[in-house]
């Protein structure tokens, strides 16, 4: 691809995982995340086995073994929202804090729930990272089309992928222009009051909107002159062959087995 999208995490390699049909990969990733949500709290061995599967797939995909691990920190900020789970379940009391009128009782059941939520979330985000680092985004969009996502939405997503870098550049240009006009003296507050700053940002958003709107007109006429008929085409047939089916069956069996195993 001539124009690499800076947001794209695709790692070009020639591996078994890269060659799999993107449809199968999407289905498998969703199945994996679905089964994470089904695993009971505290099924440590099953969680560990699932992480083992991720590591194995990473190696098969010729990624570094800790590649998904390194990128998975993105879920950390949201862990804040799960903290209250620590105090939500009745069980053996481990500690009690008094926070104003709020009495926080840390229980063993609450701790178990919190740890399990974090593990599930962390395993799920790793498999999503694996998916996008072994599948190009255009292939991913095409897979979604095969999985019956409405054509209209597929086209909008394809456009978004194509122009997100272009318009992000435009936004960065606006930010740079603001930066270069906002000289700051040391030890002095600059940039007016909050309202003024927000208005400046609002004007920039409005400016970005007009540039995007006018650009979409030009894009449409250019596409029309190249024979655009309302939907995007692809040369990649994306057939699902017997190997894909076998893998799908095998993974489904493994994941079902893991569910039983976790409840033994």
């Amino acid at each position: 691809m001539a124009h690499q999208n800076i947001f794209d995490q695709y790692k070009a390699e020639n591996s078994v995982i890269h060659r799999l049909s993107p449809i199968v990969k999407v289905v498998l990733a969703v199945l994996f995340i679905f089964s994470n949500a089904l695993l009971p709290d505290g099924a440590w061995l099953s969680f560990a086995l699932k992480w083992g599967a991720i590591l194995m797939l990473s190696l098969l995909a010729k990624l570094e073994w800790h590649y998904t691990l390194k990128r998975s920190v993105i879920v950390l900020p949201f862990a804040l929202a799960g903290i209250s789970a620590l105090f939500s379940l009745p069980g053996k009391t481990l500690a009690i804090w008094q926070l104003g009128s709020l009495e926080l009782i840390l229980t063993d059941a609450g701790l178990l729930r919190f740890e399990s939520i974090l593990l599930r979330s962390w395993l799920s985000v790793q498999v999503a990272i694996l998916l996008v680092s072994t599948t190009t985004f255009p292939d991913l969009i095409h897979a979604l089309e095969h999985l019956r996502l409405p054509k209209m939405l597929v086209t909008v997503i394809a456009f978004l992928y194509r122009y997100m870098t272009v318009l992000s550049d435009e936004a960065l240009r606006l930010l740079r222009a603001r930066q270069s006009r906002s000289a700051l003296l040391p030890e002095q507050r600059g940039g007016g009051n909050l309202l003024w700053r927000a208005r400046t940002a609002g004007n920039m958003v409005g400016q970005l909107f007009l540039r995007s709107y006018e650009r979409s007109d030009r894009i449409y006429y250019a596409m029309l002159s190249r024979g655009y008929s309302g939907h995007l085409r692809t040369l990649n047939p994306h057939n699902i062959n017997i190997r894909d089916w076998l893998l799908l069956m095998l993974s489904f069996l493994l994941i079902t087995f893991l569910q039983f195993f976790a409840r033994l």
Binding site: M152, T155, V156, I157, A158, F159, L160, R162, Y163, M164, V166, L167, S168, E170, A171, L172, L174, L175, R197, A198, T200, A201, M204, V205, L208, F209, S212, Y213, R215, S216, I219, Y220, M223, Y228, S229, G230
Partner: peptide, 22 residues
């Protein structure tokens, strides 16, 4: 059919506009 490219570019606009902070 002109609306479809417009919606696509507008989606990219919203994505980029979320970068503009104050």
């Amino acid at each position: 059919e002109k609306q479809v490219p417009l919606m696509g570019v507008m989606a990219a606009f919203i994505f980029a506009a979320q970068m503009i902070n104050f």
